[in-house]
Amino acid sequence: MSNSEQSRRPRTFPGLDADLGPARPLSRADTEWLVEQVVGHVREPETMPQRRRLSLRTLSLAAIVVVSSAAAATVVHQRIQRNDAVAARVVAAPPRQTNKPTHGHAVHERAIDSSENVDVAIEIDRSVEVAPSSQTPATREVPPPVTSASSAVSATRGYAIVDELSAANDLRRQAEWQAAEAAYRSIAAHYPGAAEAAVAQLAAAELRLEHLGDAAGALRLYQSVPRSSALGVEALFGVSRAYRALGNADAEAAALRSLLDAFPTSLQADGARARLKQLSADSTHP
């Protein structure tokens, strides 16, 4: 482009080049696929490259939705199964236990009703396990409806997490950043160890970093996600971005190197390498 053309361009308009943006990044595999399609048809004037029925982005989003749904369903299903097993063991115990257990573990006295949460069922499970099978029956009767009640309770709880995540997502979509962040953190606090908790924690960190101007807070949240978890790569990338927002280039570079060491083939790896290169260039030519 000539100098006159450059001067014609308002500052509002970035240039046209092969750098990132405004088109969304295309993976190397998709780039190769697309180029192959085009080159393969150059000598065939009558035909056009076969278009993908769905765009790459649509397919990616669909895959994410499917995987997320499957993960959520698995978590809920596992909870239901676990508590069904718990209840089954309780039901399988002698129907009337007339003596107290000899190991000092009292059978939990509360009857389970639909208003109690899954922890109650787990307590009963522990009590039953410590009671020796040779013992004479305990004094208290275990109510038969416990199986369906505990299943319902656990299912309710599993669905509750999904509902809460969905509500937090809605808040985020409505740009209610503060409320959404609080909702995500609440999920992480209430369901520690759940798969959804890590997801919620990352989402809260993201909001802190991107919308609430709290990079230090975001950093703490990112760092608290276990690197060995499935979301470890996301957390590490978040750590690097938080350090970037805090202006700590050395720590940012260290986080990016950790990411590349631990997840060299991840989706974030290319971005991490590019950023490391940029950081290196910046340090060479400040």
């Binding site: 046209l16 092969a18 088109a23 969304r24 295309l26 697309l34 056009m48």
Partner: peptide
């Protein structure tokens, strides 16, 4: 050329959905 082609197309058309389809036609 592809990255530049995709960028120009995205400047010109609404949304991301059709960028790669148009890019195929344009590159061809």
């Amino acid at each position: 050329l592809l990255p530049r082609v995709r960028n120009l197309i995205r400047y010109l058309i609404h949304g991301d959905q059709d960028v790669d389809d148009v890019a195929q036609e344009a590159l061809l």
